[in-house]
């Protein structure tokens, strides 16, 4: 990072303290109202998720709240049921492959776009960014028709490739914005020092994009791990993912075992997110 870029980051971090203006009675009332409203909204955001986690510890076979009693019986049932385990592993397998593909495609796309002048880059951006805009039900139908034509229904690799499409825009935006922060003179410097384009990319540019690339990759993984619409159309019998199984169960038998499956999804996705945030925070602390 150049000195000015660093300054900008620091500046952004040192947010000015809240107003120290003298507070009148009207403002005091407004401020408290605001706080109560915001607290309620936070509760609205978080409580439903907590409910799922709590429900997973229920001791009876039907959903109740408050719980009839605490127990791990549904965890035993979930982890003892090969169908659930298989579904979880299948989800993980598909999501990893989808994330890898999306990361490669999105990263090279972002870099190529940044280094290609003119209309070509604009067209590429529209193509790679638009999956974020297209309603998933539309994507799902497209994949359904093609999968049916090519007899790919249920093929986990094909599903992963389809999922990677949804991850590409996130990798693309993440890497693109990091590239904009990057000093273009660094690549020029490497070239004048004797590095070819390929070496410059591998030794200078990509190493500085690692955090942006991994953020994008993580998002692509989570999207694929959670995906619940496309899978309804293309799953077949041997590619039942965790989300697919959860969907079927929600429709046909509501039990706390579902809450366990939901908790697994929450823990994997939110856990990954928290880990990366933690790593980011640690890296920033070490840097300063």
């Amino acid at each position: 990072m150049t000195a000015t870029a660093r300054d900008r980051v620091i500046e952004r971090k040192i947010r000015t303290r809240p107003d120290r203006l003298p507070i009148g009675p009207l403002e005091r009332v407004l401020r408290w109202t605001l706080r109560v409203v915001v607290a309620l909204v936070f509760a609205f955001l978080v409580i439903p998720i907590l409910i799922v986690v709590i429900e997973s510890f229920n001791s009876v076979d039907y959903l109740t709240f408050p719980l009839e009693g605490w127990s791990l019986v549904h965890y035993e049932r979930f982890f003892g049921d090969p169908a659930w385990i298989d579904a979880t592993l299948k989800s993980a397998k598909i999501a990893v492959l989808a994330a890898v593909i999306a990361t490669v495609v999105g990263t090279f796309g972002a870099w190529g776009m940044a280094r290609t002048p003119g209309r070509g880059a604009g067209f590429a951006f529209a193509l790679m960014y638009s999956p974020i805009v297209v309603p998933i039900i539309v994507l799902a139908m497209g994949f359904y028709f093609v999968f049916a034509d090519l007899r790919l229904v249920g093929d986990w690799v094909a599903i992963a490739v389809a999922y990677s499409v949804m991850g590409v825009p996130y990798v693309l935006t993440s890497v693109s914005s990091a590239l904009q922060q990057l000093d273009p003179e660094l690549e020029n410097a490497a070239r004048t020092l004797g590095a070819r384009m390929r070496q410059t990319l591998a030794r200078i540019t990509l190493p500085q994009l690692t955090s942006a690339i991994s953020a994008g990759a993580l998002f692509a993984f989570v999207i694929a791990f959670d995906e619940a619409v496309i899978i309804l159309f293309v799953a077949g019998s041997d590619s039942v993912t965790l989300a697919r199984r959860l969907w079927d169960s929600v429709r046909y038998d509501l039990t706390p075992t579902l809450a366990v499956a939901g908790t697994v999804l929450i823990v994997v996705c939110v856990g990954l997110f928290l880990i990366t945030e933690l790593i980011k925070a640690l890296r920033e602390r070490r840097r300063s």
Binding site: W111, G142, V165, L201
Partner: peptide, 29 residues
């Protein structure tokens, strides 16, 4: 061809094949 052009062409080709084609086929239907 320039390296950057190749770096962009491959992702674009992938997206055309895996994304634009299915959506286009659906629209055509």
């Amino acid at each position: 061809p320039r390296f950057a052009t190749v770096a962009l062409a491959l992702p674009v080709a992938f997206m055309v094949l895996v994304y634009a084609y299915p959506v286009g086929a659906m629209l055509l239907k």
